[in-house]
Design a protein around this nucleic acid. Structure first.
Lengths: 220, 220
DNA sequence: AACTTAATTTAGATTTGTCTAAATTATTTT
DNA sequence: AAAATAATTTAGACAAATCTAAATTAAGTT
């Protein structure tokens, strides 16, 4: 019932990776966790023995139902702490992820449920990602990416699909964050870059790479 | 500059033990940490190599100045989290210690300093123990133990010198906590037990063992 | 289908923190 | 002061998590 920091990091990362692809590969996971493929294989055997993982050698892996429950618990803790850090301790948007990576491994259930209540049962973390409730339930709220938004329509930034320090720094510089109203003005075929309006006035250019990572909720 | 959970637990425990005795022994530490003497010796070698400890084989050990600084950092984190848990999350007095034992190992300095500010720079934790400031400074406020208090003088409970679940449970049952006004009415020579008044009326008996662990600040 | 390349796994080593059992040193008792 | 006892350290082993290098399997190419 209790997992090491290392096990938790593997479980959490598999959960995020298998969203996109159905199944996760050894190299993918090694890349994401900055470790070696051989280390991944070792851990996969252990997680399989604990029935958190479906895994046959050379066939990739995905979490079992139990594994997903564990992952949702970790994600719940991570996102509640992010909310706390931003809302109460006044950390900025781009600082919370790193600190929450440490706090998420404190797995006292009473602590997390009381924290949740203290924060007023928030639905989303400061990056716009939904926070699972005490039973592991999580909202879906389908989002689309900025390149898919029609031209000249005002819409709302509701998330970022990549938590790296680099992207958060770039977004900060461009003054784009959760809740920013944006409008795509022009698409350049050559490099798929976009000219967009942010806020009321500012017109800026953003690369395809960045646009792909900006999530939009269609309203407004 | 960064220490493992295990190293931190040793450092913290040595700090607490060397308060009473000047120097700490292998067996004492093994008892406190629920580990074996051989494990203690191994760790002492490591901490000595890191210059946190004065240690010559068979001579006991005490923290260096650097070691004490590290210890005060850990104690600061522990007590700030205890304060947070009691004050904001409404944990009871006897629950906070155990949870803080986990949170104290998250050693992000910015996190702790912001938490401190958010809590309003509290001076004492919920057990009445002083909280070191960001520079490791800690208040002294000499306390005496209940058996040393003169008869028929009202005074204030300001701490407990033992954080075990057992003692906290007992104090809770007897309705004694930080801030409780008590007065020693009678001393029984036979077993050194005390008859005391708590609050305005209640007269109860407490054992020598318990009385030894109740700290009094002389005022009131 | 055979060959090449890429991905994955195995084998064996390393580090950290722990353990037991035996050896050593210190302390206490007679 | 010698003997007995207690405390401490050493030696050697083990589990967890990692690594490198070599072996194996899968996938892609001619």
């Amino acid at each position: 019932m209790n997992y090491s920091v290392s096990e938790e990091n593997y479980i959490k990362t598999i959960f995020h990776l298998q969203k996109k692809e159905g199944t996760v590969t050894t190299n993918e996971l090694a890349g994401e966790l900055k470790t070696r493929p051989a280390s991944v294989t070792d851990m996969m055997k252990k997680l399989k023995a604990k029935k958190l993982l479906h895994y046959q050698p050379y066939q990739g892996f995905r979490l079992t139902t139990d594994g997903s429950k564990v992952a949702l618990g970790i994600i719940r803790r991570h996102r509640l702490w992010e909310y706390f850090l931003a809302e109460k301790l006044k950390f900025t948007w781009d600082e919370v992820h790193e600190v929450a990576e440490e706090l998420e491994h404190v797995s006292n259930k009473k602590l997390i449920d009381k924290l949740d209540a203290y924060l007023g049962f928030p639905k989303k973390d400061p990056h716009g990602d939904p926070i699972p409730d005490a039973h592991g339930k999580i909202e879906n709220g389908k989002k689309i990416r900025l390149p898919e938004v029609p031209l000249n329509i005002s819409c709302l930034v509701s998330g970022v699909s990549n938590q790296s320090g680099e992207i958060l720094e770039l977004l900060k510089h461009k003054k784009i964050s959760i809740g920013t109203v944006v409008e795509v003005r022009k698409r350049f075929e050559f490099d798929q870059s976009l000219e967009i309006r942010t806020g009321k006035q500012t017109i800026i250019n953003i690369s395809r790479e960045l646009a792909e990572n900006i999530l939009i909720s269609y309203e407004a």
